[in-house]
């Protein structure tokens, strides 16, 4: 199971297990109002990681934590590039590059190829790309993004 928290997506946490994903939130502002109204939610959620590591820690144990701090976001002519250095407790894990085009028909593949050409220029050959979607028939942006993170980082 993988748990990915996106600080650039309203602190939502995506849990991925067996090609299925669930989006959870720890932000009180994101709770659907209906859940607060009928008393289902107390209005003070915590992160699913906290619950896994406290209440469910006899079932789940954290094996590895990879953290990307102080990344940069660049917008290049409709292409959003996010760069962050990833560290684990043992040291540097790698540079993560997230590419996103704003509109559907934005020649995404050509732009990825452009970035890959840049990487070849600086002789960075050992990289992995992923643009997979979790399931062919459904699209959930943040789940797909989390899944791509997992695919790119898995070694």
């Amino acid at each position: 199971m993988y748990s990915i928290t996106f600080h650039h997506h309203a602190r939502q946490t995506v849990l991925i297990k067996d090609k299925s994903a669930v989006v959870t939130t720890a932000a009180a502002a994101d709770i659907p109002p209906a859940l607060v109204f009928n008393g289902s939610s107390t209005g003070v959620p915590e992160s699913i990681d906290t619950i896994l590591s406290s209440k469910l820690s006899n079932i789940w144990m954290q094996r590895q934590l990879i953290k990307g701090d102080s990344g940069e976001t660049l917008i290049l002519d409709g292409l959003t590039v996010r760069l962050v250095n990833l560290f684990s407790s043992t040291g540097f894990k790698g540079l993560l590059i997230e590419l996103q085009v704003a509109d559907e028909g934005g020649e995404f593949d050509a732009r990825v190829a452009g970035i890959e050409a840049h990487l070849a220029e600086i002789h960075a050959k050992d990289y992995k790309t992923s643009s997979d979607s979790m399931a062919a028939d459904s699209h959930n942006d943040i789940c797909d993004l989390a899944y791509q993170y997992v695919c790119a980082l898995e070694s």
Binding site: S20, A26, P32, S41, P45, E46, S47, A135, H139, C143
Partner: peptide, 13 residues
């Protein structure tokens, strides 16, 4: 202790 499940995706959501 509480968390909110917003949505799900994947093969078996």
């Amino acid at each position: 202790a509480e968390t909110i499940i917003l949505s799900s995706a994947g093969e078996n959501p």
